[in-house]
Structures are given as C-alpha cells and as structure tokens.
C-alpha cells in the first residue's frame, strides 16, 4: 500500500520543512531550541523507563 506523501519530504525522505524552520532562526535560537528538545526527549525516555520498571 502506498504511504501518503508528505509534501515537505525530499528525495531522501527528509522533512525539509523542519530544516527550513530551523534556518529561519538565529544560531543562538537554534542552539537553545535543539538543546531544549534533546533534554525533553531524554526526560520522556527516562520517565517511560521508570514506568516500565515500576510495572515489572
């Protein structure tokens, strides 16, 4: 079955919209945004892991 095509996706399957959004920011804004997201994702992973540990 064909997957729905994302109009922002290029030939490599990369969402170029995300890249364009980052390029619109200043370097400092990009730096802070990417660090914020990285820490948020790590926190979410840690919480999920804790949840699994408590259940088992």
């Amino acid at each position: 079955m064909n997957q729905p095509h994302n109009p922002n996706e290029d030939a490599r399957g990369v969402d170029v919209g995300q890249i364009r959004e980052l390029l619109r920011m200043s370097v400092a804004e990009r730096a802070h945004e990417m660090v914020r997201v990285a820490n948020l994702m790590a926190k979410a992973r840690e919480t999920a892991q804790l949840g699994r540990t408590v259940k088992s």
């Binding site: 995300q18 980052l22 390029l23 990009r30 660090v35 990285a38």
Partner: peptide
C-alpha cells in the same frame, strides 16, 4: 551533532 544543530540540522544530540 551539536555543531550540525547550530548549522540547522534537526537531529538532536546529548
């Protein structure tokens, strides 16, 4: 990865 972030890469790193 962090240098790439500064240049516009959307892949996070820690």
């Amino acid at each position: 990865g962090f240098a790439a972030n500064l240049l516009g890469s959307p892949i996070t790193t820690r």
